[in-house]
Write a protein that binds this DNA or RNA. Structure first.
Length: 291
DNA sequence: TCAATTTGACCAGC
DNA sequence: GCTGGTCAAATTGA
């Protein structure tokens, strides 16, 4: 598991970026006729997106510092839109999981459950029906229980639990998925097309070479969406694992990431040629996830 | 009227 | 006995 070698340094970087963007934001409040309204709107939307991502990153970093004391066991990325399996328990993750291991019923799906932290717990491309709500000991927020809407129609056993983790301006939710969907009812692709502001071009192709509406995510740093020197090339859809694979091309290397249920997952092992800090990778994740 | 949500009760594991 | 997960009747809203 990779860690942030200097957590304070990562936080300083995020804070600096946040302040820098914020200080430049007023310049885009006024429309320059030469630039055109569309360009200004694009710049404004990108700035807002970057601010949102940085705000989320700061919230998570602050949360980690206050709860884990910046301990070495803390997973640097696990609190940022990070998907991991139950068996990946360690550090903070293990503490979260320990609550969920008490009953055999709860453990019955241990091997197939996944936990993510996100600011958009309901936007995962599936249709859910709420079937319960509980006040969990030691938490400020209730836990909500959802099952797949097609449980009876198609026998889909997928369930998920949503628990709010923080009450910041941009609250973070822990979402636990149990059992896999067997209903084939995903509408995940739609979330990438649900765009109401100017967005980088999105299209894609599947392993059969078919062009689909969301492939070829050509997002480059010139548009200000990503940290410098990062470019996202083709997004592939793996029909067997129902995952999209996105190849992130750095100027000095390439890494693979997976987009599942709308969440981007970066490799958990450190990359030898990774030119970015974990904070920058977190920013990258958020920049790519349009919720 | 029907589907979705709410909420108290029940069940099973610890 | 406590706690978390699920059920199902009651309630709500379109």
């Amino acid at each position: 598991m990779a860690y942030v070698p200097d957590r304070d340094g990562a936080m300083r970087e995020v804070v600096q970026a946040y302040e820098l963007i914020k200080s430049h934001q007023p310049h885009f409040q006024f429309c320059d006729k030469e630039q055109g309204l569309e360009t200004v709107n694009l710049a404004q939307s990108l700035l807002n997106e970057a601010l949102r991502a940085l705000h989320l990153a700061l919230s998570v970093l602050n949360h980690e510092t206050s709860t884990a004391g910046g301990g070495a066991e803390g997973s640097s990325r696990s609190h940022m839109l990070h998907l991991f399996s139950r068996s990946d328990a360690a550090g903070d993750v293990g503490a979260i999981m320990s609550q969920q291991r008490r009953s055999k019923r709860r453990r019955s799906n241990e091997e197939t459950s996944q936990v993510i932290l996100t600011d958009a717990p309901h936007d995962d491309g599936y249709i859910w029906r709420k079937y319960g709500e509980k006040k969990i000991n030691g938490t400020h927020f209730t836990r909500n229980y959802f099952r797949c809407s097609y449980k009876y129609d198609r026998g889909c056993q997928a369930t998920k639990q949503i628990q709010q983790q923080s009450s910041n301006d941009l609250p973070i939710f822990q979402v636990t998925y149990n059992s896999e969907h067997t209903c084939n009812c995903t509408t995940a692709a739609n979330k990438y097309i649900k765009i109401d502001v100017p967005r980088p071009h999105l299209s894609s192709c599947n392993p059969n070479g078919m062009i689909s509406p969301m492939a070829d995510a050509m997002i480059d740093q010139n548009q200000g969406v990503l940290p410098p020197l990062v470019e996202v090339s083709t997004v592939f859809f793996d029909s067997t694992s129902c995952q999209e694979t996105s190849h992130l091309n750095y100027n000095c290397g390439t890494i693979d990431a997976y987009i599942d249920l709308g969440q981007m997952v970066l490799p958990q092992e450190p990359l030898e040629d990774n030119p970015f800090s974990d904070a920058e990778l977190d920013l990258l994740c958020n920049s790519l996830m349009y919720n």
